[in-house]
Amino acid sequence: MTAALALGGLGLVVALLLSIARAVLASKERGSEGAVVDAVDALLPQSQCAQCGYPGCRPYAQAVSAGERLDLCRPGGPNTVAKLQALLGREREPAAVAQTPELVARIIERQCVGCARCIEVCPVDAIAGAPNYLHAVLAEHCTGCELCVPACPVDCIELVAWTPK
């Protein structure tokens, strides 16, 4: 009787401890997953261009931490791939991405009709203007993501080389 109670009690206590440990570890795991996404996101160029197939840099960072390919970021180029590989310990994965020049958009003012469609698609609010008024790209905020180019009905947006200020 005493032996059964003692063993049963011990079993209960251990079961309780194990369940607490599991809950704590699981929450830690969730927390560190967010930390990985943050670390990946910090290495991405934040152009929000969606050329990787995800709707922005943060979604791609989440996909990468869940195992997505590392070489989908075109604006980041080989340097970003190398940093992601080093961060995640995935150096052995094949990666093919070319170096692309850093760009900013510029509106050709003679052609702009003031339709405001580019303003809506800009992911960083870098185009100033209002319907029926001339628009202008705020070069210091533009990431060169090219999302405004297909939105323009008169093809008046060009991309020029970005230079650090």
Partner: peptide, 21 residues
């Protein structure tokens, strides 16, 4: 080194603006 730092600065600013949007 200067160029990479400028790119990081650009990315941080873009992240903040994108989050705000």
């Amino acid at each position: 080194t200067r160029h990479r730092a400028a790119l990081r600065e650009r990315a941080d600013a873009a992240r903040a603006r994108s989050d705000a949007r």
